[in-house]
């Protein structure tokens, strides 16, 4: 049976993981490769690296990180941040990323989704959607860009449908309302999008514990859940989360035995 996926996410600046990770003894808590390997051992189903390097002059540090990760990590990983063209996509995929995630650039140039899907296959193109609930509305969300700063006027569900129609193989949906609060994902947003498209949806923003993840999967109809802090700070291990989800009746890949 196809299992739901648990995906730790890292922010990377100049090839280094930022916002410290403290769940386990690491020689170098900023080394993305060491972290990725540790999470693979713990049973992570996939990984997401979000590149927040401000200057495009420093892209080579990101390239080195992606190549080094691909050399040593044998589960899929996605790279997002700063991908603005089909050439940017090609570089990341050739370096060894399984998928690339595009957000602002997909809104500015929606044809980029079509081009990416045509050239690299839908499975390689993730469209990330940052959305905020429209005040006073019952079930409406607006898409924001630039890390949630700029409103677009786009309806999140409509944009999700368009992105999938253009060839996105997966949608990474983040609620700007719940992100960082650890009080749960926006279940209404997840469900509205997940039920409107036939591609998988990754839930993001607001994970505080396994019960939030259960809800995102069972009630939000997401195919995968993404979280950062609760894993990085050791609040919960991947194993604990997986045991909780399995006990709730969700199909989960058990943590592999240590080799």
């Amino acid at each position: 049976m196809l299992t739901r996926r648990i995906i730790p996410c890292f922010d990377v600046d100049n090839g280094r993981v930022v916002k410290g990770v403290s769940f386990v003894e690491l020689r170098d808590a900023g080394d993305p490769v060491e972290l990725a390997r540790a999470y693979e051992q713990q049973g992570a189903d996939e990984l997401v690296f979000l590149d927040i390097t401000a200057s495009s002059d420093n892209r080579s540090t990101t390239y080195d990180m992606v190549a080094a990760t691909a050399d040593q990590v044998f589960i899929p990983f996605t790279v997002g941040g700063g991908i603005r063209s089909a050439l940017d996509m090609k570089v990341m995929l050739e370096l060894g990323a399984e998928k690339v995630s595009i957000n602002t650039s997909a809104i500015q140039t929606p044809e980029l989704i079509n081009e990416g899907a045509y050239r690299f296959g839908s499975q390689a193109v993730v469209v990330a959607i940052d959305a905020r609930r429209v005040r006073g509305s019952k079930g409406q969300w607006e898409v924001f860009t630039h890390g949630g700063r700029n409103p677009t006027g786009l309806d999140a569900v409509e944009w999700a449908k368009e992105a999938a129609t253009r060839g996105a193989g997966e949608l990474l949906v983040t609620s700007m309302d719940t992100d960082g609060h650890q009080s749960g994902y926006d279940i209404g947003l997840l469900r509205a999008i997940s039920d409107a498209v036939t591609v998988p949806v990754i839930a993001s923003g607001g994970a505080g514990g396994p019960e939030h993840m259960t809800k995102a999967l069972a009630e939000g109809h997401a195919s995968a859940v993404l979280a950062a802090s609760i894993f990085h700070f050791g609040t919960y291990s991947i194993r604990e989360v997986k045991e909780h989800l399995a006990a709730a009746g969700l199909p989960i890949r058990p943590v592999p035995a240590a080799s």
């Binding site: 049976m1 196809l2 299992t3 739901r4 996926r5 189903d45 839908s122 499975q123 193989g169 997966e170 997940s194 039920d195 409107a196 498209v197 036939t198 591609v199 998988p200 109809h221 195919s223 995968a224 890949r253």
Partner: peptide, 15 residues
């Protein structure tokens, strides 16, 4: 055959 409760691509870990 895609549907909202059987997503396509078939993406993830299966037995």
């Amino acid at each position: 055959e895609p549907s909202p409760d059987r997503k396509v691509p078939h993406m993830g870990w299966n037995t």
